[in-house]
Design a protein around this nucleic acid. Structure first.
Ligand code: FES
Ligand code: FES
Lengths: 152, 152
DNA sequence: CCTATATTCTATTGTTTTAGTAGGACATTT
DNA sequence: AAATGTCCTACTAAAACAATAGAATATAGG
């Protein structure tokens, strides 16, 4: 159930980009890496992948850098994670973007599958609706439910 | 965001165990493996781990096998996954059972963290309340939300 | 007691994924 | 032309994953 460093760095970089971008300015990899404590060369790859995925654009050359390809309110965390880390679904048989049958004898009566379907929807409901704009402007969501005692 | 084969097999085995156990009967690894299409020797390890984790008990020797250590209604999918796969949280800085700081400059103002906190709670809310008994008796949950168009 | 059938436990293996590093080509500004 | 950037590919070390192997131990049933 875990997000890779690649995914984590990518998200942090995008949030950084969304919060520091204004007007027609661009931001260099180095600037993001320093602010966010991310290895420069690793971040380079990640931003490149996101460029190829259409989430950011870049300007080359000296004083070049990156900027969001779309308004922050139109980029969801779900898009970023899928691009960098693959499907959100915990198990392939409930994935919409990368379905694959599992070794279960009968998928249609599988109890695990129906629970995991709920889990994947719960995750996607959050990640596909939280945009970079929401995150930057501190959209509270419904966190602070610290009375929840379950351990993760 | 994905569940390992180890976790998947473990869950399937426990569900199998919960649905075929009655009275004081025990079920052999081989029986489970055949019904669930799981490699026998791999399942062996997994069940052993769950025995050491206190979720199942066993009877050794001929006509021996495994049985649930507690009533099915008292074993949650969350317990099983944590035992076999570790924390449910997508990122360590929001994990209750295995917290670890990340490289973020400031955890208290991190937007990503607060979103991931919601995600981990959404996952835990489901997995810590769904018991083996629920799964076996086809507790519908709130699946069938096929009008949800997000891709996982 | 013997044998067949189980669990128990440790070690080893091959593959894939992860988390980077390295280095050079290319573009743009100054 | 030099400095500063992105672009792109290849490489690598380490960890995680998905098993497999094999021997030890325990028990039921004849
Ligand atoms: S059908 Fe995928 S886990 Fe059963
Ligand atoms: S504090 Fe963990 S992601 Fe920012």
């Amino acid at each position: 159930m875990r997000l890779s460093k690649r995914g984590e760095y990518g998200l942090r970089a995008m949030i950084d980009l969304a919060s520091w971008t204004q007007d027609g300015r661009v931001i260099s990899i180095k600037a993001i890496a320093e602010r966010e404590n991310i290895p420069v060369k690793f971040l380079e790859q990640i931003l490149l992948a996101m460029k190829n995925g259409g989430l950011v654009n870049s300007r080359m050359g000296a004083s070049g850098g990156y900027y969001l390809a779309k308004p922050a309110a139109q980029i969801t965390l779900g898009q970023i994670i899928r691009l960098l880390d693959g499907p959100l679904a915990p198990i392939r048989c409930v994935s919409q973007m990368a379905y694959e049958p599992c070794s279960c004898p009968d998928e249609s009566t599988c109890g695990l599958r129906s629970v995991m379907f709920d889990v994947r929807n719960a995750i996607a409901d959050i990640l596909d609706h939280q945009t970079l704009a929401d995150v930057v402007h501190g959209q509270p969501g419904n966190n602070l439910k610290l009375n929840e005692m379950s351990k993760s």
